[in-house]
Amino acid sequence: MSAKFTIDDLKRILREGAGTDETVDLDGDIAGSDFEELGYESLALLETGSRIEREYGISLDEDALADARTPAALVDLVNSHLAARAV
């Protein structure tokens, strides 16, 4: 299996591509929080998805990306793509 995508990778990419809301502690326990509560609207997630795709060489389905409402869900989505590629 290829490199695993972790929540820390996601946090780094969120910071680089979309910045952080000062009222949100991204280093806290955010895995189950809704992206909207974390201050990320759909465009921020589009940018995040695009950065993940180019860094990890995968292609994320737009609908699946939109359905991933939390960091944990997005991490799972990316890992399922990485696992599928490794097969």
Binding site: G19, E22, G39
Partner: peptide, 8 residues
Amino acid sequence: LPGRLLPQ
């Protein structure tokens, strides 16, 4: 400015 606004 807040950090969310800088990248955009």
